[in-house]
Design a protein around this nucleic acid. Sequence first.
DNA 1: TCAATATATATCGGATCCGAGGTATACTCG
DNA 2: CGAGTATACCTCGGATCCGATATATATTGA
Lengths: 179, 179
Amino acid sequence: MLELAILGFLRDRPLHGYDLRKRVAALMGHVRPVADGTLYPAIKRMAAAGWLTRKDEPGAVAAPRRMLYLTDEGRAELERRLRDPDDLDISDENRWFTLLAFLRQLDEPKEQAAVLRRRLAFLEEPTSFFYDGDRPMAAEEFGDPFRQGLLTIAHATSQAELAWLRATIDALVALDGSA
Amino acid sequence: MLELAILGFLRDRPLHGYDLRKRVAALMGHVRPVADGTLYPAIKRMAAAGWLTRKDEPGAVAAPRRMLYLTDEGRAELERRLRDPDDLDISDENRWFTLLAFLRQLDEPKEQAAVLRRRLAFLEEPTSFFYDGDRPMAAEEFGDPFRQGLLTIAHATSQAELAWLRATIDALVALDGSA
DNA sequence: TCAATATATATCGGATCCGAGGTATACTCG
DNA sequence: CGAGTATACCTCGGATCCGATATATATTGA
């Protein structure tokens, strides 16, 4: 997921690692930024894969910066990941949020809509969080406020997402039809 | 986080690995269950740490089951993790949800409320997801429907959680006062 | 002026996780 | 009766991640 964020940010403009770190933290980390011990190895790894190149930037700032440029291979890899995301079928909000932040970078509205439809199909599957043996338990069955809270929050989240998904898919289809 | 789920489920009743796998999948995994290659090493690890004991169950079922029993050390470890969760300050919904599912296992309403208050404080911090240089960008600034969607969903989620948190903290405080 | 903080990059060990593969028995359906 | 599926446990290699640690300079505030 970190790799997708790096590819996405670099498609907008070249950045050095420290700047990238702040942007990734804002998107994925909030309080605790992504650890340096995670980010810099990831950059190195992705440079080895040929997705980005590094160039030293002799500048006015304290430490020497290494600017990161997305290569054509990196751009192709980004498009591949946006078009065919592996994990729309699991309930990992962070992954979905990161994807959502960069999905606009796909050129075709039709392909953007296709990704959203897969997510919609996933969210429309019935979900159960708790079981008594093999029998799924309904929210009303436990007075436990914490499990009630879990279901309340999960429900509100998926309702908000569903509403937005449906509206956005419609808009993308209309956009594609009129083009 | 997997370890917290295992401790929490075993506090309710002894389970064998395969049963645990289904419950963990229902809570954390939904479509894709936690991999066997993750769960069984985790069980082994936790047995080595003294948090649970394993006993072979010669039974009528196909393969021999190994029942898992939480030890006193395991119960103490669970309470420690519920009381002092490391990561209420990061935006990982899965962690928070797992914690929420077992927080009722803390005996004192006062301590339950204390955990919720820390989460409340985190959610009340202003958050920005996107930056133009160092300047945080408001939702209105980009017409981009994907970033708008990101903010819409994030906002709805945190509003639902805030409302539930405030109500539940009040209820716990009242409960503690009347006891 | 001196300490602290911010800038900036990097390595290393340890932890956890996933995917692929392996083993074996019971039940169900054609 | 045979194939497929469900039950049930496990190992191993590879990937990613975090925390600690290291280095070095510029800026800011007491």
